[in-house]
Design a protein around this nucleic acid. Structure first.
Lengths: 197, 197
DNA sequence: TACGGCACTAAACTCAGGTTAATTATTCCT
DNA sequence: AGGAATAATTAACCTGAGTTTAGTGCCGTA
């Protein structure tokens, strides 16, 4: 995976999310995405730091992890390539990130400074419509997750995870799955035992 | 509050959410927003119905309420005028709403069919940027709510509600506040008792 | 091959919040 | 104002999930 392939993949990814998007190469727009590699265990950025970058994951798998004041870890999302990644909040508010992005499987990604990226891209035909479609989808996902926490038991949330993200289930340690559905590893183990019987 | 005043208020509201938005009267665009009144206890739409309309609340207060398969009621949000309102999911996916919008205080609102509204408005300079800003804010709100459910205790969530929406606290029955923070009225009563002492 | 570390499971105990039911306040309606 | 319906509180009890601790299996490195 080289820079050009990654840029190509990004444009295809973006195109697939909306309709009618087109744009020239990033270099023409004066954008200079950086191609970077991250190993398992590294972080794209850490909770508490400014995180003004938009990432496009060309390969790999990451998790959004945050730690509560009491020291409990929680997983907000798993994101598998190809996908954009980053903290919407940190980008648009120019504030610190409320979560870290931890690499679970080796990542090759493009990194853009959000502000120049957004300011340039919004001039391109179809960009804003596509970005709107992405934001709407993100919002709907969060809404579904909110409702799962309130309406579903831990066991139901685990089953829902298996249904929705079953293809990730064997790539992710159980303790991280537990923290994604909002329970302890011990509780997840209990649930799994019960389900087996 | 008449049609013209409501339309004016909407444009001002929208302008205040972004920068650089401008547009002519809705009638010029071929949009025909309907001005409607709703009484306390009525619904803008109900869970399970198609909900293709965007509402602009010129006055009043509503709640987004949904019922789980097991029959438990849950409040996703309280929205006070002036504000837009509706189900993003139902509008953009042209699907049924997953929640009802129940009127808590008398509402006067404008109703737009989402698709013609979006298709017309996105031609207007600054509309998409503003809508992006609104979606980003909505997403961030949901993200904060997701994290509250996982990281905070019921008591902390109640205190957070008082802090963030304290001005609504005495306009909303306690059982609805309870269902908003994801607990039973009995549990909320216990918490309030404990906090008083 | 052994050893250190991590992931997972298991069992015992605790506790926050759910459930049920009875009691007292409020609100609403005529 | 009076009475019915609804909202809020309280108490007693129950349960799902957290906590702690211990044990088992597994993988990687020497």
């Amino acid at each position: 995976m080289n820079q050009q392939q990654a840029e190509q993949l990004f444009l295809e990814y973006f195109r697939s999310k909306g309709q009618g998007f087109d744009c020239p190469d990033f270099s023409v727009l004066g954008l200079e995405p950086v191609l970077r590699h991250y190993r398992k265990g590294e972080y794209l950025f850490r909770q508490g730091e400014p995180a003004p970058k938009l990432f496009f994951l060309a390969t790999g798998l990451v998790r959004y992890a945050s730690v509560s004041p009491e020291g409990k870890e929680f997983t907000q999302a798993f994101i598998a390539a190809p996908s954009i990644s980053g903290s919407t909040r940190a980008m648009v508010r120019q504030s610190e990130a409320l979560f870290s992005i931890e690499v679970l499987e080796p990542v090759i990604c493009l990194e853009f400074e959000w502000l120049p990226f957004y300011n340039q891209m919004k001039q391109q035909p179809g960009f804003l419509e596509t970005y709107v479609a992405i934001l709407e989808a993100l919002f709907i996902m969060k809404e579904e997750r909110e409702s799962a926490f309130v309406k579903l038991s831990a066991e139901q949330r685990y089953l829902q995870f298996l249904e929705q993200d079953g293809h990730l289930a064997d790539r992710i340690p159980l303790q991280q799955i537990a923290s994604y559905i909002g329970i302890t590893p011990v509780a997840l183990s209990r649930i799994r035992k019960k389900l087996k019987s």
